[in-house]
């Protein structure tokens, strides 16, 4: 009973055209033009050479801040779902407080109010607390609150049956969390964690208000002393975009791999 052969219209070239990542070409074009200018335009080259050492500090405060934020976020996320009302309310207070205040204002407040208060209470002269450390602490406290919500959502996305099965085998709550729930939750939320890492890299620019000599601060210093504002800020944009695009491509690749694994 072979019917008439059905012609499948060949639309692959059209689909490819539509699906092609043109946005990536556009961004790469900008990055390439900037890279060429860094080598050919003496003004831009000078600006670049002044600003680029800031990458080291930007990456340092981002990485250190993110590791601390992961710890804080996990603790606060677990606190959010705790059966203990006191623990739960402390966690919610922390998260809602941070979410209700602009990031820039929080950085100023944490660096110039909380750090002196805590260091005085501990009997340490707060002038001994470096601005880099204040930036790291501020960013980690802020992102800890965002990550807490991600951790909470990740844990709640795991079906109740997983906890019940683990507990019915005699595991205590901590063992069930550590060996059964969290490994699955972390896998589910790893793309969201990656996104927040990129967001934190960008927000590390706010540390410039503490005069931390990261990328943004160096660009502002250079622009202020040379009055070459366009060069300074173009180079600054170029530096951030290079890092964030590289990271987000890495993240996309990882997500695709994750998707293939779970099939």
């Amino acid at each position: 009973m072979a019917g008439p052969e059905i012609q499948i219209p060949d639309v692959s070239w059209r689909d490819n055209w539509r699906e092609f990542p043109w946005w990536l070409i556009a961004i790469f074009a900008f990055l390439v033009v900037m890279a060429v200018l860094v080598f050919t335009d003496p003004d831009i080259k000078e600006a670049f050479l002044f600003i680029i050492p800031g990458v080291q500090i930007t990456l340092y405060i981002t990485l250190a801040g993110f590791v601390l934020a992961l710890i804080l976020g996990l603790l606060a996320g677990l606190g959010r779902i705790s059966g203990n009302a006191l623990v739960r309310n402390i966690a919610i207070t922390y998260v809602e407080f941070v979410r209700g205040v602009p990031t820039l204002v929080l950085i100023l407040t944490l660096a110039f109010v909380l750090v002196p208060a805590v260091s005085n209470a501990m009997g340490v002269d707060n002038r001994n607390v470096s601005i880099e450390l204040r930036a790291i602490l501020s960013l980690s406290i802020i992102y800890g609150a965002f990550l807490a919500e991600i951790f909470r959502a990740g844990i709640e996305s795991i079906s109740k049956g997983q906890m019940e099965a683990a507990r019915s085998l005699g595991m205590n709550y901590r063992q069930a969390m550590q060996f059964i729930i969290l490994p699955q939750a972390v896998r589910n939320i790893s793309p969201a964690l990656g996104n927040d890492f990129i967001a934190m890299l960008k927000d590390s620019s706010l540390a410039s208000v503490l005069a931390v000599r990261e990328l943004t601060q160096r660009a502002r210093l250079y622009a202020g002393s040379t009055f070459r504002f366009p060069e300074s800020y173009l180079v600054l944009t170029f530096c951030y975009l290079t890092m964030t695009i590289a990271l987000s491509l890495l993240l996309r690749w990882y997500e695709q791999r994750l998707g293939k694994d779970s099939r």
């Binding site: 079906s159 049956g161 997983q162 019940e164 099965a165 683990a166 019915s168 085998l169 059964i180 699955q184």
Partner: peptide, 10 residues
């Protein structure tokens, strides 16, 4: 030991 309707394997 407990066996569930939805298996609940890890």
């Amino acid at each position: 030991g407990m066996v569930f309707q939805q298996f609940n394997l890890f």
